[in-house]
Amino acid sequence: MSEQVTPIRRIAGTAVPVRGDDIDTDRIVPARFLKEVTFDNMGEYAFYDARRSEDGSLNDHPFNHYTGANVLVVNENFGCGSSREHAPQALMRWGIEAVVGESFAEIFADNCTSLGVPTVTLPADDVEWIQDRVEEDPDVAVEVDVEDEEVRVGDRTFKADVDPQEREMLLQGIWDTTALMRSNMDLVEEVYERLPYTSGYEE
């Protein structure tokens, strides 16, 4: 009884490069914007502080210039820090449909998968080449191919890595795991009954 959803095989468009290792979730969405009880407005808060100068005016952050881009290109350990799903929600609602980088923090990558946003990894040199290329020509065509595990930029093709489970979920269109796991509730009940602590270790 899993839900009908659309598989995600390829994402084509243009890219936005955000350079730097260890860009954390506080930078992606500052904590003060977590006080909203829905994710509806998160797109406005993507890189909110990083995009602004001391006087509050918009600075030269890529998110101020590459409007319309749908592929984010980042470096190492992107999304480290908190478990806030607000971070990928903000990026997604800003318009990001896939993230390409050297490596990702685990909870961030999981959260992206929950939203159907692929996180694809490439070696550092390839990522830097792509960032350079996009900075030279922001309109260059970029395609993230989850199925063939490739990233294509202009006329160049890079071999990429997609976590095997994440790839399966995206290709099968089953990243919404609720329905999938709800079909096993009889087995869940067995585990619940078997675990000694759910009854407080009473016999």
């Binding site: 994710f39 908190s82 478990s83 806030r84 799903e85 990928p88 909870i107 999981d110 959260n111 929950s114 939203l115 976590d163 489970q165 919404d176 795991t177 609720t178 999938l180 796991m181 709800r182 096993n184 509730m185 869940v188 619940y192």
Partner: peptide, 20 residues
Amino acid sequence: IGIGTSQIRDVLATQCIAMT
């Protein structure tokens, strides 16, 4: 394990998370 909001949804609805 720290989880995101969609995984909290999973735990509420099924008491489970999907993990590797």
